[in-house]
Design a protein around this nucleic acid. Structure first.
Lengths: 194, 194
DNA sequence: GAATTTCAATACCGATCGGTACAAAATGAG
DNA sequence: CTCATTTTGTACCGATCGGTATTGAAATTC
């Protein structure tokens, strides 16, 4: 019929995700976006709608990737305790590795937008609930296999671990001494060792 | 000498604190501020400097009040475990009580500004470190009095509890079911009961 | 009470905000 | 090719942004 789109939608959405992740919703301008995405304003609006719709699309892309990564980390582990150790130590390692500390895009959004926008309250909550289920199922597998104490409350423990993950991620945005994060990871893992 | 100031500096700074706490730095405009503070722009600039300096003053006021509140909650307790129980249950109660979920001004700032502004990285980190010391000293008193297991690592446990507090506060911004928060509080308190 | 000083209020500044009208360029269908 | 259709690039929109020059009012000193 007519002229073809000159950009790859997934590619420019990824660029939008990166910058929203770095700077948040309010601090990111349309000029920032078009520059980083490499497209013009009318193209952006035609493809994604307004700024908030683009943000939502970027966040959805992030949560999908994030959930999939975490799911992969807890699939088919010989030791659940070991999987959690690798997970939390990786969280710390990653945070101290990059100069800029973006943290978690979903948590950033939970703080910036969830209290003022029900759509993002729901979106961010559902992502955390999904992660909680991943943790819970991992714990249940650990109990079934005999690795973990069968008297553990899998759901409650998963919820507590998710909250610890959130707290650690947010705390590291202020760059405390590395020993702080390491101590916390040790403390978190203790809860699996009872 | 000359004309006197017509507003109380502490009172208008408190108003600025409230609105920055609610909306964050970027989403709060000077019009929002002057409206809520009840003063004109030139008065604001004369008294507090520019927007970021005002934000810093508001945050410093918040951290002082916040630290003082928490210090009071852990001073002269018959039972340390009971003090922590009251503290965390109060945190949850408060979050679900107010319609708008402001969370903690310091944590909001940690997410929004700490990664891009060293001044706020330091300011927010030092506040969390201060709170950690309060927790640590409370735990040490509990050990000394015989209430807590003397094999507990007071510092590491305090750090883990601070991270749990942060995670819980942030998680509640997405308004999970009340049972989620209650389960987490139970899990947190378990760490003191070993 | 006049002079001086500091405040408050209005009005305004250039810059940038999110968003769009419009026309040129590019593609496919006939 | 010609026409229809869609994307692109430019240029622009009103509104609002953070910040300030200016003027008039209020209060103290002499």
């Amino acid at each position: 019929m007519a002229r073809l789109r000159e950009f790859d939608e997934e590619q420019v959405l990824d660029a939008a995700m990166q910058i929203f992740w770095e700077k948040g919703f309010e601090a990111t301008s349309l000029s920032d976006l078009t520059l980083r995405m490499g497209i013009q304003r009318p193209s952006l609006y035609a493809a994604f709608g307004d700024k908030k719709e683009l943000f939502e699309a970027a966040l959805r892309k992030y949560t999908q990737i994030h959930a999939s990564n975490i799911r992969a980390q807890f699939h088919n582990n010989s030791s659940i305790r070991e999987a959690f150790r690798v997970f939390f130590e990786g969280l710390v390692e990653q945070a101290y590795a990059e100069d800029m500390n973006r943290g978690c895009f979903c948590l950033n959004t939970m703080v910036e937008l969830a209290p003022h926008d029900e759509k993002f309250e729901i979106l961010t909550r559902e992502h955390q609930m999904y992660l909680t289920v991943i943790f819970q199922e991992a714990i249940e597998r650990g109990i079934q296999s005999g690795e973990l104490n069968p008297r553990l409350n899998a759901k409650a423990l998963a919820q507590t671990l998710i909250v610890s993950m959130i707290g650690l991620t947010v705390m590291m945005k202020s760059r405390p001494e590395r020993s702080f994060a390491d101590n916390v990871v040790s403390g978190i893992l203790l809860q699996l060792a009872e």
